[in-house]
Amino acid sequence: MSLHQFTGRLILLTSAQARLIPDIDTDQIFHNQHLHITEVDQMGRHALGNLEGWTHFPELVQDGDVVVAGANFGSGSSRQHAVDCFRALGVRLIIAESFGAIYKRNAINSGMSIIEFPQAGELVKTGKWEHLNPIHVDLDIGLVKMMDTDETFSIPQLSKVQRDIMAKGSLLNI
């Protein structure tokens, strides 16, 4: 299987009202009290540690999972930790309605797959995407397939700069 095809589950970052949470900022993703950490594998346990209702995320998440969030995900600070904490936990893809600009750069530069998908909120609202649904993802053609029902959804493809950097693993290898 290519680097761009994998199987996992949807982790929907929703509020108590079952809607994707908008404006999740980097202090909610990786709180500034842990910024002294420089080892990526020690960052996972703090992922979403300051996001109300989601502090159990590090125990919940499994290798290959896809995190789905609302608009402006990763707004706030420039900390790479807010990307690396997901990498440390084996998250393969982050889908958000939109991303904070610096977060987007940081994810792309470290080879973390991210996709801007404005329709995500609607799919969650209408129940087409449910929390912990098993899925198969093909980033080369931009496809999410629900394993239970075989229903498929088109998502945007990776940009050229994303593919170039992912092929090298990191901007630092370019």
Partner: peptide, 11 residues
């Protein structure tokens, strides 16, 4: 001025 993460800056 542009804020960046540590990968970007190391590069």
């Amino acid at each position: 001025g542009q804020g960046m993460g540590d990968v970007d800056i190391a590069f």
